[in-house]
Simulated scan of single mutants.
Amino acid sequence: MKYLEGIAEFCAVADVGNFTGAANKLDTSVAQISRKVASLEKLLGVKLLQRTTRSVSLTEAGTQYFQQAMPALKALEDAQLAVSALQASPQGLIKLTAPVAFGEAFIAPLLNTFMQKYAGISVQCTFSNEKLDIVEQGLDLAIRIGKLEDSTLVAKKLATRHLFVCGSRDYFSQHSMPKSLQELKEHTLLVGSQPNWRFVVNKEVQTLPVQGRVRYNSGNALCSAALAGLGLTQLPGFYVREALARGELIEVLPEYKDKQEAIWAVFPSNRNVAPKIRLLVDFLAQNIMDDR
């Protein structure tokens, strides 16, 4: 079976376009990918990849080999998936990414419960507010919040959450409560990573450009600033719900609240998604509550 060695590594490089991405995709080292591809080229007696210090491209022979080898490799992967689906208990590593605050508060506890239920599953989760490239990083899925960019990724809606505009009692002791969206311009606003706040007016989403003396890319920091009386902020419920319940923060303009910001699971659009990935996505959809 020596002729099979290096095919998966070569196809990964050809598919992703570089050795680093291929190593991440196959969860191995760049050196291992390079050795396997070199061995395959030696076995075939032909150069498959043209390497420079900045890029990797397919030779004519490499293009032809990739076109022939990839369907065969996919057939083998499909056979493995079919066998895996027969297992009573899913097995293997799941690699994913999620936003930091939301991931730590909600995704991590659910992952822990999932692994308690399925002992054969292990998880590697990267918490990051950057939208990591799933294919480039070799990830199985990502948790995204809000509007999705157009892509070839498959998306499954897990839940929705609300956005609250609120300020502290100390702030409102010195400022009147806004009665309209236009009156927000008269207030000190605490701005996050997005340049606009979102509202729903007559069932349509409207955005309001916002500026302020405070700009944080952290929901927890914005909540802290609001509690300190520095201004008004717009945040998802999981940041402010407890402070609202205690009366430390007061919600304003609830009639314009955006209640439909979606929470998504996105994953590569392979024809057959591994059963363990589908199982996790379904588990998250069943256990992430709406109105976060």
Rank of each mutant, 00 (worst) to 15 (best):
V13T: 06
I33N: 13
L280Q: 03
V13D: 10
T126Y: 07
D27L: 00
C166E: 01
Q80L: 12
T160H: 09
N196G: 02
F114H: 05
V240H: 11
K47G: 13
L158Q: 04
E77K: 09
L4D: 14
Q124M: 09
R292E: 13
E242V: 10
Q87S: 07
K47M: 10
A274R: 15
M289N: 03
E251N: 12
M70A: 15
R215G: 00
Q286L: 09
T53K: 12
S128K: 13
A88P: 03
R241F: 14
K131D: 13
V37E: 01
P178A: 00
M289I: 14
T207R: 13
F238P: 03
V123W: 03
I277R: 08
W197M: 01
V46P: 08
V13I: 07
G146C: 04
K117D: 09
D140E: 03
L110V: 01
V30T: 13
R292F: 07
E9R: 11
G167Y: 02
V281H: 11
I143L: 07
L232T: 06
A88F: 03
A101K: 02
Q211T: 06
S84E: 14
G192V: 01
P268W: 10
V210N: 06
E255K: 15
R169Y: 01
I143G: 05
K259P: 15
F114M: 09
T97E: 08
Q50F: 13
G92I: 04
Q50L: 13
L49E: 02
N272E: 13
V37K: 02
V273E: 11
G212M: 03
K259R: 15
I134G: 00
P195D: 01
M115C: 11
C166D: 02
I94Y: 08
R35D: 11
V281L: 07
M115H: 00
D15M: 15
D150I: 11
N112L: 12
K74D: 04
D170R: 07
